[in-house]
Design a binder for these strands. Structure first.
Lengths: 342, 342
DNA sequence: CTGTTAGCGCATTCAG
DNA sequence: CTGAATGCGCTAACAG
């Protein structure tokens, strides 16, 4: 019968094993285990006991084959190295895990060929849907293959307007950052941004400038674009202090840039936040809590974004889903670099 | 998805669709597509064309059901938040992806209940094997459920000696760190470690002390245990300099601790690396490259560890695998904090 | 070389 | 209420 090699342990128990042990047919066993109504209470009990005794675990493959649905989704990242994919992935995994859905993880490593390979593999495994996580908020080309399951683009929107994308609201993030600084009583605000080639940087600038304009407060100096790194923050802060020593707040393109700015301020003898308030973006914990003082930052709520992507995919599984790009709100996390520690 | 020729609701093409279009039986179509020998070249061509025309993609569920093997594995992390899981996961995903194996990702979030839930789900999906990734190098209890597929414990070894575990060689890491400092001409070496409750901290101390002893060099002061954070590094460095101003090298428990130590050294007017060499552990890029000067660190080769876990699982799929704990070597990455930048 | 047959494990008809 | 039969999509035996 079982001429399967079964190298280790025993072959997993099947429904007919359970049925035999319970002395019923597989059909009845199936109904009993799935809570169908047409089965005698006593019979059900026998089946349940038999299943427990054999540690029966229904074969999802067989079930999926029959149902045409597998209860699996593909999570396709373009770059797992970057620190933005992970929280999104966590949020999605969390939301799916609660809903009995298992997640296939694939990393394309920024390579289109590898991406196609993974998409094909996922489709051949009959995933019910796909979440494509980008590595920056810049729009990306839609998947090359034609896909007959719902696809959600997260973080990086698809270039195709008919696709469904979920992205952080970076314009709103820039706006709320400036509003926070103003609420802290600052009126001479400078902005040391990040890499101008990223839409995240430009969007935050857009929001920040809009908030300043609404408040009738001019930006101190020009927006300074550079890189996302500490070294840029140190250098840019030095130039800023040389030209505009009256500055009382610096909004930084990232937490790393803010760390650099903090370093230079300390070296120049400026107190934070008394003389100059500093804040960053991303709310990267190791950066914000290691800083002196601890760094106020705007959190993109990426885990929530991942959860939202998962929920949206769920909905799309049943009904035809809406199209276009949705945004997830950001939030300011206040720490000692803008408000004296409590 | 307007460009997709296969709209929602359209059943994916099946092998019999292909067979019908090619005018052959499903068996022949199967053989043709799978490169079996017993099929005429011309027939095979017709089948391949039909398959391409229908964008046929074989149903892995059906295949897995029949073969008793699914070509999937479960990757069970206990804490995705920590920064050590991700590189391991990347390495494993990479190794599996190349081998036509798809990876289910599950995060137990440090919760035993959730871990059981995930294990059951994975078993019901008939994964061929399991990799359990811990969040620290301290031994962990083996999986609660009895599992009839191979299991590899990565990073955190299993407490059960008969399980197969792969962990970084932290003792070796401590040893090679000290050897590097000695090679740099340092003779008055102090060690500001991390959290004493972690075996990673203690193992590195063990290795460091062993290397010092072999070289006949005494440790400067006592091993200072604290936390893994920057603040601890700053504080501990202050105390160290007060008591042992003659120190010429500080080995730090983590890159974050090293960052704190660098801060204090700069404030006290010590030049790095001229007066004092500094090195950390983990080689966390954002920490090492943001530092001034850039930080020498010991890399645990976690991506390689993930790859090794995947390879080992592969082997275990076919043959009964060896037992016990294997280690992956670490490596020193030299930067400006121990050797003047080139 | 090709086609027919027989399942893999399960849920769902439809008879009894 | 229960059980025998059907088929999801595919591959491995065997016939032809």
């Amino acid at each position: 019968m079982a001429r399967n090699p079964a190298p280790r342990g025993t072959r997993a128990a099947t429904l007919s094993d359970v049925a035999r042990l319970a002395g019923v047919s597989v059909a009845t066993a199936s109904k009993a285990l799935n809570g169908r109504n047409h089965v005698h209470a006593q019979t059900r009990e026998r089946v349940l006991q038999a299943a427990a005794q054999l540690s029966f675990s229904p074969n999802s493959l067989a079930r999926g084959l029959l149902a045409g649905r597998t209860g699996t989704v593909g999570l396709l990242t373009s770059d797992l190295v970057g620190r933005f994919s992970l929280p999104i992935l966590m949020g999605a995994e969390d939301a799916f895990g609660a809903g009995q859905v298992s997640v296939f993880l694939c990393d394309a490593r920024g390579d289109a060929i590898r991406e196609r390979h993974h998409v094909r593999a996922l489709l051949s495994r009959r995933v019910d849907g796909l979440i494509v996580v980008g590595s920056s908020t810049d729009p990306r080309p839609p998947l090359a293959d034609s896909v007959d399951v719902p696809v959600i683009y997260a973080y990086a929107p698809s270039e195709a307007p008919d696709d469904l994308s979920i992205v952080p609201d970076n314009v709103g993030a820039g706006r709320m950052a400036v509003e926070h600084l103003i609420a802290c009583g600052r009126t001479r605000i400078a902005h040391i941004s990040g890499d101008r080639h990223y839409s995240a940087a430009r969007d935050r600038v857009t929001g920040a400038l809009a908030a300043l304009e609404e408040a009738g407060i001019p930006l101190v100096g020009e927006v300074a674009y550079g890189t996302w790194e500490e070294g840029w923050g140190r250098a840019a802060a030095g130039m800023l202090l040389d030209r505009r020593p009256d500055v009382d707040a610096v909004l930084c393109g990232s937490d790393q840039v803010a760390r650099g700015v903090l370093d230079t301020l300390r070296e120049r003898g400026r107190r934070v936040p008394e003389d100059v308030a500093v804040m960053g973006f991303d709310n990267w914990e190791v950066m914000t809590t290691g800083a002196r003082p601890r760094l106020t930052s705007v959190d993109m709520n990426l885990e929530e974004l991942g959860r939202a992507a998962a929920r949206t995919l769920f909905e799309a599984l049943d009904a035809d889903h809406a199209k276009g790009t949705r945004t997830v709100q950001c939030r300011v996390v206040v720490r000692g670099s803008t408000a004296p520690d409590a």
